[in-house]
């Protein structure tokens, strides 16, 4: 009896899960991560790369690297790579194939059936395109589920009787908010709004800007001019953001971040949750507008 996998086919990252012993389990990919970048690339040697490996080479091979294909689902856009045209369905199918393979590697058996999630605002043609992508990937798509419905199911809200809920989904690069009614196992999306250019990355950017500004104030050097320093700032900003979910204050410690004639410079900044909330208040406010509309 083969397993049915559940795939969250995201704009920036995708995730695959399976029910095991009655519990949903997120399947880690071969690199041990719970999500896989939704990135497809064709290397210079003609090899097809999907996921983290595709993302790692993106900067040196931008013309043959496809990101955020989800935004084109349901359109008749063609992606031309060398002398071949690909539809968004075909590109998405490559991501789905990768997720399928990860699941097969984990389960040790072939997988042929899947449930795939789509945003609640997806039109029929976008849903059909997603289904087609599944078929191209060799998957029988048992069901296309709305993302907020999947979220509500994951929280077990279907077992709590009839109620109205709000699902706030802030992804890496997109934001969706939905109001749903749950009753007798039926999920109805009453309203859905979003902003497809707002995500966690914007919050990281704010922290980076803050750190760079603080450093400029004390040392007079703009770290944004230094690519290596910028990369370290980016990682530190994301780490600080994550830490501030659990603690009220965090220390950003970047010794030897840069140097000038007067010697090496260090970045040592303490960031409080209050400060973080203050600098990202407008981003949260940005998400409130669609929320009120919904």
């Amino acid at each position: 009896m083969s397993k049915i996998i559940g795939i969250d086919l995201g704009t920036t990252n995708s995730c695959v899960a399976v029910i095991e012993g009655g519990e949903p389990i997120v399947i880690p990919n071969a690199e041990g991560n719970r999500t896989t970048p939704s990135v497809v690339a064709f290397s210079k040697t003609g090899e097809r790369l999907v996921g983290q490996v595709a993302k790692r080479q993106a900067i040196t091979n931008p013309d043959h690297t496809i990101m955020s294909i989800k935004r084109d689902m349901g359109s008749d856009r063609k992606i031309r790579i060398e002398d071949k045209n690909y539809s968004p369905q075909e590109i998405s199918a490559m991501v789905l194939t990768k997720m399928k393979q990860e699941a097969e590697g984990y389960l040790g058996e072939t997988v042929s059936q899947a449930v795939i999630t789509v945003p609640a605002y997806f039109s029929d043609s976008q849903r059909q395109a997603t289904k087609d992508a599944g078929v191209i990937a060799g998957l029988e798509v048992m069901r296309i589920i709305n993302e907020p419905t999947a979220a509500a199911l994951a929280y077990g809200l279907d077992k709590e009787g009839n109620q109205k809920i709000l699902v706030y989904d802030l992804g890496g690069g997109t934001f969706d908010v939905s109001i749903m009614e749950i009753g007798d196992g039926v999920f109805e999306v009453l309203a859905t709004r979003g902003n497809n250019r707002l995500g966690g990355d914007d919050f990281d950017q704010r922290v980076m800007d803050y750190l760079a500004d603080e450093f400029k104030k004390t040392e007079g050097i703009d770290l944004r001019m230094d690519k290596m320093a910028l990369q370290r700032l980016k990682e530190a900003a994301e780490k600080a953001k994550i830490e501030l979910s659990g603690v009220l204050t965090t220390n950003i410690n970047l010794p030897f971040i840069t140097a000038d004639a007067t010697g090496p410079k260090h970045l040592d900044v303490t960031l409080t949750r209050a400060k973080f909330e203050e600098m990202t208040a407008d981003l949260v406010e940005k998400s409130m507008a669609p929320l009120r509309e919904a």
Binding site: P255, F256, G263, P264
Partner: peptide, 21 residues
């Protein structure tokens, strides 16, 4: 990074290097 900068600039920035370490 500390070693690179120490090698590069000699020991003239001992204080800054010490702070870094």
């Amino acid at each position: 990074r500390a070693l690179d900068i120490s090698g590069e600039k000699g020991s003239s920035h001992a204080e800054a290097i010490c702070k870094g370490v």
